[in-house]
Design a protein around this nucleic acid. Structure first.
Lengths: 191, 191
DNA sequence: CCTACCGATCGGTAGG
DNA sequence: CCTACCGATCGGTAGG
């Protein structure tokens, strides 16, 4: 089912506003003004609630990761290549969908139940699958042996600055950025 | 000047509450109850404002980092050893002062001016000094050549999961944790 | 540290 | 998409 133009505009502006101010600090009144309406109440013709916007942004992002993971898991390539592609996936998502990424990383905890639990479940699933690839790489001798959770969290988190930093683009190209990060992290993993 | 026992208690509970709920979602009413008062208004005998609590937590954390940095900069050791000690410093702060750490990392943006600017300045100062050590290590051939900002941000951010994760301590000791992280990151830096 | 109370703002509804 | 309005909650003050 297609989104109406107005609803799409509301989602886009909400995404940017939540990123700038944080979910709680972002008011529906300010969102209304950015969308071109005088009163917050007018928004409710198009949406159900403020949290519905947060849900949509969080779950759309989650879906992006899980789809990427699926494709990479199924490919017939080495653990090293899989991890490289996962890191590239993270970099690509963080730099192409900046505001969604921020919300996905930081604001999901304002989801209420049962969405909060559902989100945590998807996230845990993603992490478990990422961890399995790392584990496998250690077993076949491609990666340094270490605690898988520590390794996973370090990689995972080390990419979390991109979505805050990238918009400023301090004189480095996407390509060079990705190359440096990959080199650093893969060099660290390598036995 | 020494803190009174009540004020110390308020700060401790605020630190925990801000960590659990986030600064904006944490109400003075709930803080009052945790401290053992019936009404939020009673808190104002001891403190000036809600934001004053956030300021204290943020700037105390910042001071901890800057003092650590100063000691490490002045030591007569190699860039490799300096970076190792900086990473250990981050791990130590994140695991010994968990709630302050969370607020320092995530909630500082709710500071109002002029504190927000002051905080950003201290942070930028710290990052610049960390970056100088990395740069130096590249110049003397100890580290892989790469964009210093990318390298710095990756290291810096890669330690940001500790303060969220450590309290759960999923069956790994502090020592083993530190060893694995150091090995991974230093291996990655190494030329 | 309490009671009583303030103005402001919040997300959201009614009704057109 | 507008006006009018709701109850709830917020941080904070007055006064004792």
């Amino acid at each position: 089912m297609a989104l109406t133009r107005t609803k799409k505009k509301i989602l886009d502006e909400a995404s940017k506003l939540f990123q700038e101010k944080g979910y709680l600090a972002a008011s529906m009144q300010e969102l209304a003004v950015r969308v071109g309406m005088k009163k917050a109440s007018s928004l409710y013709t198009h949406i159900g609630s403020k949290e519905e916007l947060l849900q949509k942004i969080c779950f759309d992002s989650a879906r992006g990761y899980l789809e990427g993971m699926k494709a990479i898991e199924d490919a017939d390539i080495s653990p090293t290549q899989k991890v490289e592609r996962l890191i590239s996936l993270h970099i690509q998502i963080a730099t192409t969908d900046v505001s969604s990424m921020t919300i996905f990383s930081d604001e999901w905890r304002h989801l209420s139940e049962p969405y909060l639990q559902e989100f945590r479940t998807m996230r845990r699933d993603y992490e478990r699958r990422f961890g399995r690839i790392l584990q496998n790489g250690m077993e076949v001798g491609e990666f340094l042996e270490m605690n898988v959770t520590v390794c996973l969290s370090t990689i995972f988190t080390s990419l979390r600055w991109l979505h805050r930093w990238y918009p400023e683009k301090r004189g480095i190209s996407m390509k060079a950025l990705e190359a440096d990060i990959l080199r650093f992290l893969m060099n660290g993993l390598k036995r």
